[in-house]
């Protein structure tokens, strides 16, 4: 089974980038890839529980993210440093994501056959 990682590192609602990346993760899982998603940089804001994108006339990303486990995308990770820098705690997140150090993120990336969204 091929392993792919989607890296969400842009802030949500700045274009459709984050949403389209999450869609790629879901389709990857449907096609029986082992999919992981890593939220880092301003991408960690995508995990914030208190979102409502209705005023922006967009889909609320936290609602889309909560569907990931139903698509069998259960390997969800978040940059620990990125959360600390932004004053976010685990209880602020809309879904369970495992915090990773920089070294752990590096190991995660090296373990993949393809990394989507690696560069912003």
């Amino acid at each position: 089974m091929k392993k792919i990682l989607c890296v969400v590192s842009r802030p949500p609602y700045q274009g459709s980038h984050d949403l389209e990346l999450i869609e790629a993760a879901m389709v990857g899982a449907v096609f029986e890839m082992q999919v992981s998603v890593l939220f880092r940089g301003d991408g960690v804001w995508a995990l914030h529980a208190g979102q409502n994108a209705a005023p922006l006339q967009q889909r609320t990303l936290s609602h889309v993210l909560s569907a990931l486990p139903t698509y069998d995308v259960k390997r969800l990770y978040v940059c620990a440093e990125g959360m600390t820098e932004r004053g976010l705690a685990q209880e602020d997140l809309c879904i369970d994501a495992t915090p990773l150090s920089m070294a752990e993120q590096q190991a995660l990336m090296s373990d993949q056959q393809a990394v989507l969204g690696a560069q912003t």
């Binding site: 091929k2 792919i4 790629a24 389709v27 990857g28 449907v30 096609f31 393809a114 989507l116 560069q119």
Partner: peptide
């Protein structure tokens, strides 16, 4: 469909973006 991306990755040695 997006499946064509995943299908291509599955049959490739490298993915470059």
């Amino acid at each position: 469909g997006l499946g064509q991306l995943i299908d291509a990755i599955a049959s490739s040695d490298r993915y470059i973006e």
